[in-house]
Design a protein around this nucleic acid. Structure first.
Length: 600
RNA sequence: GGGCGCGUAGCCUAGCCUGGAUAGGGCACCGGGUUCCUAACCCGGUGGUCGAGGGUUCAAAUCCCUCCGCGCCCGCCA
């Protein structure tokens, strides 16, 4: 479907196709009129399919209109095709299988596309700023230890959504919400507040064999976490000590060590994400919401809410009967008997703070948070907030043996481990192809190939699909992979270097580009803006990954089919096409957060 | 038990919202391609009851109902 442009019928300056749509709609409209059907332009625009026909251009299905004309679909299509008045930008209008297929003059599409891409450069595929402010919260993993690859799906999807929405024109702020208040963070503080020789024996045993001072801080300070977690299950006295830490944190009397530890572990985690190109605009510490009194205010508002009720021991809850939450209990406790807040209450405070600054909120959440999302909606309603965040829910990454990644079960694959393995394989690959590159260059390329492969592997699948982690799949450098796209970029760069046209200018004559592979490549290049808009609106960032492969594929076919440097009259036009392809490949790689490589 | 998500060739996946032209890709497998711009590539081939059954419709992978299978959630945890 062709999206109507928000700016009306004025041709957009960002999408090559937009200039062709008005004459097509006008032409179809009067052809339909002459065939006995009146269709409003808006409806027509909505009916049009892009990428539809045998030629992959604009198609109009006549099935819904045929009844109005009292004709069989293909009869109507034939009539419309015959009645279509000649138009300079239209090459042919034909009927087939109930569709009217409109083919534009290739030369015009080539001209429009190349000029737009070369003019806009790295802004091609990006729309003019215009939307309301958006806050995308993602990752927000508790600072308790290194990332495992189950968590990294959130970070990669969230970061890519931020890139895509920025390209679509939205002013985006990304936030990482750091839960430094709950039991999990308290466990870390608790164990490190004791000298190591006073640690309970099982915890010391679990950590002793592993400890190394030169570890990354997330690994180092997070190391006892699994053992502590296991230990607490069996030791009520220790649980009480941790509960005391929780109370001290919430009352603001916790040792400063607490925040330092969380920060240290977080820094280690962020260093891993940084390798994947993932960075955040803002960090929000949960404890700061307590410190500035906003959690207290929310507790007050919730206690005064329409469905608030007080429990026998002084705890407070919301009766959620009318919200029909799929829970056995019909209430949500937001304040404990001892007066401390629960996670939901703090999350309400956090979302109110976000709504105060941003028009739209997006939370990227694992499917295990689905009920929490609905609970949050209910509590926002209770405090009188009319807006709701939108949730991008993704399925967990599981291990082949079944079940989620578990830190304790030993089934977790650490992100750092995955990247190390990927880099090793990439190095082997680079060295086997290029013995002429200096070692530093090999290292740089390998890092980009490895991280690109990992990012792409996560992005290629729709978020709602469950993913089973397999090393072989995650580390693929061929076919539908990040390196496949990077390779097309590198090939294009190489051609431009040899043409001594790395930076332009790129004079061309559109009429010189008429090989099927050339037209197909141009057509694919021209799709980028539509893909960006679709992905931003639907949050289907995997569509961008799919497009990247399609584009690289179109380039590779062109590369095999058409000589560039060895052609004569066509040479400079083909160089321009390669430049446009490289630009578009680079832009889509940026959207995916995969590094473009001029050499590989 | 309730809620949400998923089920498309041996494996992975797009399309599903908004029904429409021969269900697109990738891996694996088989057969080809490099005196020529990077073979991480390209060309050709084998392989499909779109979980099952019913319904709506001129038309269903797509919408509706029932069922089956898998995952997750249903805490004064986060």
């Amino acid at each position: 479907m062709v999206e109507p442009d928000a700016s009306g019928s004025r041709p957009s300056v960002v999408d090559p196709w937009d200039v062709f749509l008005p004459p097509i709609v006008a032409g179809l409209s009067s052809a339909l009129e002459r065939s006995g059907v009146t269709v409003p332009r808006d409806e027509l625009l909505d009916l049009l399919e892009r990428d539809g026909g045998p030629d992959g251009e604009i198609a109009l299905p006549t099935f819904r209109l045929a009844g109005r004309a009292k004709l069989a679909p293909n009869e109507l299509a034939e009539k419309v095709a015959a009645a279509f008045a000649p138009e300079p930008s239209i090459r042919a209008v034909s009927a087939k299988g109930g569709y009217v297929n409109v083919a534009v003059v290739p030369e015009r599409l080539v001209d429009r596309t190349l000029s737009l891409v070369l003019l806009r450069g790295d802004r091609y595929g990006h729309f003019e700023p215009g939307g309301g402010s958006v806050c995308i919260e993602h990752t927000s993993a508790n600072p308790t230890g290194p990332f495992h690859i189950g968590r990294v799906r959130n970070a990669i999807i969230g970061d890519t959504l931020a890139r895509v929405r920025r390209a679509s024109g939205d002013p985006v702020t990304t936030q990482y919400y750091i839960d430094d208040m709950g039991r999990q963070a308290a466990m870390i503080t608790w164990i490190w507040s004791k000298p190591q020789d006073e640690w309970p024996a099982p915890i010391r045993a679990a950590v002793d064999g592993l400890a190394r001072d030169d570890d990354k801080p997330d690994l180092r300070w997070g190391r006892p976490y699994p053992a502590v977690s296991a230990y607490l299950k069996e030791h009520a006295d220790a649980r009480e000590e941790v509960a005391e830490v929780v109370r001290r944190i919430e009352s603001g009397t916790a040792t400063p060590r607490h925040r330092e530890l969380a920060q240290a572990i977080l820094d280690g985690m962020l260093a891993s994400l940084d390798r994947l190109g993932i960075r955040f605009d803002e960090f929000v510490w949960e404890s700061s919401l307590v410190a500035d009194g906003s959690v207290d205010r929310v507790l007050g508002r919730l206690r005064a809410a329409p469905h608030a009720l007080e429990e026998a021991n002084g705890a407070w809850a919301i009766d959620t009967t009318s919200y029909r939450l799929p829970k056995e209990s019909t209430k949500v406790v937001f304040q404990r008997g001892d007066g401390t807040s629960l996670y939901v209450a703090r999350d309400v405070a956090y979302h109110l703070a976000k709504f105060a600054r941003f028009g739209t909120l997006v939370d990227v959440l694992g499917q295990d948070h689905q009920l929490h999302a609905r609970t949050l909606d209910a509590l926002l309603a209770e405090v009188g907030e009319p807006r709701r965040p939108s949730f991008l829910i993704y399925q967990d990454i599981t291990v082949p043996e079944g079940g989620r990644m578990s830190t304790r079960g030993g089934s977790a694959v650490w992100l750092d481990q995955l990247l190390a393995e990927a880099v090793e394989r990439a190095q082997k690959e680079v060295r086997s192809r290029r013995d002429d590159l200096p070692e530093a260059e090999v290292g740089r390329i390998s890092e980009a190939v490895a991280t690109g492969a990992v990012r792409y592997h996560v992005l290629r699948v729709a978020p709602e699909k469950p993913v089973v982690f397999r090393w072989e799949d995650a580390l693929s450098f061929e076919g539908r992979s990040g390196p496949f796209v990077q390779y097309a970029y590198a090939r294009a760069s190489s051609v431009l270097r040899k043409a001594e046209r790395d930076r332009g200018p790129y004079p061309y004559e559109a009429a010189r580009l008429r090989e099927p592979a050339e037209i197909e490549l141009v057509r694919t290049i021209a799709k980028l803006p539509g893909i960006v808009r679709y992905a931003a609106r639907s949050s289907h960032v995997h569509a961008v990954a799919g497009y990247a492969h399609e584009l690289a594929d179109a380039f590779n076919r062109f590369y095999e089919a058409v000589p560039v440097l060895r052609s004569d009259a066509e040479r400079s036009s083909r160089v321009a096409l390669v430049a446009a392809a490289r630009q578009t490949l680079g832009n889509v790689l940026d959207l995916l957060g995969v590094a473009p490589l001029p050499v590989m």
